[in-house]
Amino acid sequence: MRVGVPIFLFLAAAGFHTALTASLESAEKEDTFVGLEQLSELQKRDQEEFEAAQMSEAVQDENTEEENDTQEEDMNRDGNVEADQHESESDEDVDGMRQKREHLEANVEEADETTNLAEVE
């Protein structure tokens, strides 16, 4: 019996050591798994925040583009109005010059006729 007690104590200690080691490894794996799970959740939140920021930025860019397009259209409209006004002023100038030319040509023709009549008489 004296030999049986130390063997029994040795086996009990070995079994206790194995159980304790397995328990610690299991807890470590769970901690790692929980840590990975938490990390995964953090990554998901970060990804969602990143996507939300990108969408917000895209909306702002779109609004900015629309504002720029609107301003550009307004400027083009204003430019077209000014060009139309300038064109109508140019047309009026051309019409005025045309009338002056026609008037001068009529005066020249009258002068020529008067000169011809004076020569004939």
Results as ranks from 00 to 15, higher is better:
M1G: 04
M1F: 06
M1L: 08
M1Q: 03
R2T: 10
V3L: 07
V3G: 05
G4C: 13
V5E: 12
V5D: 13
P6G: 04
I7Q: 09
I7M: 12
I7Y: 05
I7K: 13
F8D: 11
F8S: 03
F10L: 07
A12I: 04
A12C: 01
A14D: 02
A14T: 07
G15N: 05
F16E: 06
F16I: 12
A19V: 12
A19E: 05
A19M: 07
L20H: 06
T21G: 02
A22R: 14
S23D: 04
L24A: 03
L24D: 03
L24C: 00
S26Y: 07
A27P: 00
A27E: 13
E30T: 05
D31N: 12
T32M: 08
F33S: 08
G35H: 01
G35T: 04
L36F: 02
Q38C: 01
Q38F: 00
L39I: 01
E41Q: 11
L42C: 07
Q43P: 00
Q43I: 01
K44D: 09
K44N: 08
R45C: 11
R45T: 15
R45H: 10
D46Q: 14
Q47P: 00
Q47G: 01
E48L: 13
E48I: 13
E49A: 14
E51V: 13
A52N: 13
A53N: 15
A53Q: 14
Q54I: 08
M55H: 08
S56K: 15
E57L: 14
A58F: 00
V59Q: 02
Q60K: 04
D61W: 04
E62R: 10
N63D: 06
N63P: 00
N63R: 12
E66T: 03
N68H: 09
T70H: 12
T70D: 15
Q71E: 11
E72I: 11
D74H: 13
D74M: 14
D78R: 14
D78L: 06
G79I: 03
G79V: 10
N80L: 15
E82V: 02
A83H: 02
D84Q: 12
D84C: 07
Q85S: 04
Q85N: 08
E87V: 07
D91V: 07
D91E: 06
E92T: 13
D93H: 12
D95A: 14
G96N: 12
G96S: 02
M97E: 15
M97P: 09
R98H: 06
R98S: 14
Q99D: 15
Q99P: 01
K100Y: 04
R101A: 03
R101Y: 08
R101K: 09
E102M: 06
H103S: 11
L104F: 14
A106C: 01
A106F: 04
N107T: 15
N107G: 05
V108G: 02
V108S: 06
V108Q: 10
V108M: 11
E110H: 09
A111Y: 09
A111R: 01
D112V: 02
D112E: 13
E113G: 05
E113K: 03
T114L: 05
A118T: 11
A118S: 12
E119N: 11
E119K: 02
E121K: 04
